[in-house]
Design a binder for these strands. Structure first.
Lengths: 193, 193
DNA sequence: GAATATCTTGAACGAACATTCAAAATACAA
DNA sequence: TTGTATTTTGAATGTTCGTTCAAGATATTC
């Protein structure tokens, strides 16, 4: 007998950032070995292959982001105020220079769309769950009188998701704090006013 | 003496679609040979290497899209009506299943950002030129009284660009005509109303 | 029509890749 | 401590990649 070896969560988060830095295709097993500290054999033993490591990393990413999201909307402030803080934090993420500026889901979606149907489905499901969580935020805002009752919360959530996708892409070419904040402010205004 | 046999523009457009289908990294020289009909030696003779072919394809893409853009805004209709037609056409592009649903610039930007500074700069310049063209559309709209004089045309162009980036990413997961059109309609409304 | 300059062809190359596997290391049970 | 089951290790494997280059093909020139 022999006990379990490495810290699975830590390994997955290292793999995550490696994939976000270089993309899935350009991240070699050597890169993953360097990033995770695991030798190829161990990776294959634990995750079957490189693609399996990506799938596990995507799942860990979903978990981490889910917890992070919940934390933003856990307090008792008005829903739209929480949303404003969430959006402003995204702007700050976009401004950072490390790999956290990327979103593993959209990065992998852009890279593997039309190439790996299963991965695409997993990513689409994760993004759909995120949009549903945004929908619930809007519904809470509506029930608290922050939004007029006529608004379509699902549509609002889709529009916000679209804006955030666009903001991230925009940030790749114009990592300018004022410009990004102005775009985020108008996005918030167009949705909530 | 002897002239080159192939049609450079046609070759570059074939390379374009190959890159848009698979991404730059996953498009092999064999794929490019199949797509363009050129043997490896000819490609290297004409474009130096695979990266040179990408650079040439990016330039051709810029040219093609520039002409396409001008055609949308060439007639005598009000600028905002032309813009509406332009956005609606983008929605139709997003709904198509072939590689034209992608934008070579954003696809390459997502794949190579932080990896190839020169390519990133070229793409950023192209996207900046596109935004400037959008700015001029808004300025024309303003001078024709379609927009109130207080609006910041550069900001409007950036916001529209952000929305279009987001719409394209969104389309990867929800290729649904009504949903995409509703998002595009609100984007147009938020900008022009 | 011969000479020549250029392009086309595709086999060959080393490098880098994901993956495998047998040997070495190690922790637990006895 | 000894035996054993499991993990860790990293060199070896076969494949695929971008790239090269010398031989063959062909248009142009004289």
């Amino acid at each position: 007998m022999r006990n379990a070896e490495f810290d699975r969560e830590k390994v997955l988060r290292c793999a995550m950032t490696a994939f976000m830095d270089k993309g899935y295709g350009k991240t070699s097993m050597q890169d993953l070995k360097a990033a995770t500290g695991l030798h190829p054999g161990s990776i294959y033993c634990a995750f079957e292959n490189k693609r399996g490591l990506l799938l596990a990393a995507l799942e860990q990413y979903r978990l981490d982001r889910s917890i992070e999201f919940a934390a933003f909307f856990a307090d008792e402030r008005p829903a739209l105020m929480q949303l404003k803080a969430y959006i402003d934090d995204l702007v700050q993420q976009c401004l950072s220079c490390d790999s956290s500026q990327a979103c593993l889901l959209t990065k992998a979606l852009n890279e593997m769309a039309e190439q790996d149907a299963e991965v695409q489905q997993i990513i689409a499901n994760n993004l759909a769950a995120w949009q549903q969580a945004l929908t619930q935020v809007f519904e809470r805002a509506k029930s608290q009188g922050e939004l007029t009752s006529g608004r379509d919360c699902e549509h609002l959530a889709r529009y916000l998701a679209m804006g955030i996708y666009g903001l991230r892409t925009f940030a790749h070419t114009h990592p300018n704090a004022e410009t990004l904040q102005a775009l985020a402010d108008q996005l918030y205004h167009d949705i909530c006013a």
